[in-house]
């Protein structure tokens, strides 16, 4: 029922992959912070896609 201590939860794998993309993450964060009072959908889509590409690459490399 519960994951064994040796088992890695998917969320932990995700955390590891995201930690390799700090440059892209901070770019995306800056884009949001530039105008966080009027955030709308896909305001920072470009930056987010870069972050996501990096995350996907990192999560594949981790396996």
């Amino acid at each position: 029922m519960h994951p064994k201590p040796t088992q890695v939860r998917p969320i932990q794998r995700m955390a590891q992959a995201v930690s390799k993309c700090s440059a892209e993450a901070s770019l995306y964060g800056k884009c949001i912070l530039a105008d966080y009072n009027s955030v709308h959908k896909d305001m920072c889509a470009k930056e987010f896609l870069k972050l996501k590409d990096c995350y996907l690459a990192a999560s594949k490399g981790g396996k």
Partner: peptide
């Protein structure tokens, strides 16, 4: 969703 978690991580850190 993973997209929101990913965005949340970046925004939390920046903010």
């Amino acid at each position: 969703s993973r997209d929101v978690l990913l965005a949340n991580e970046a925004i939390y850190r920046a903010l």
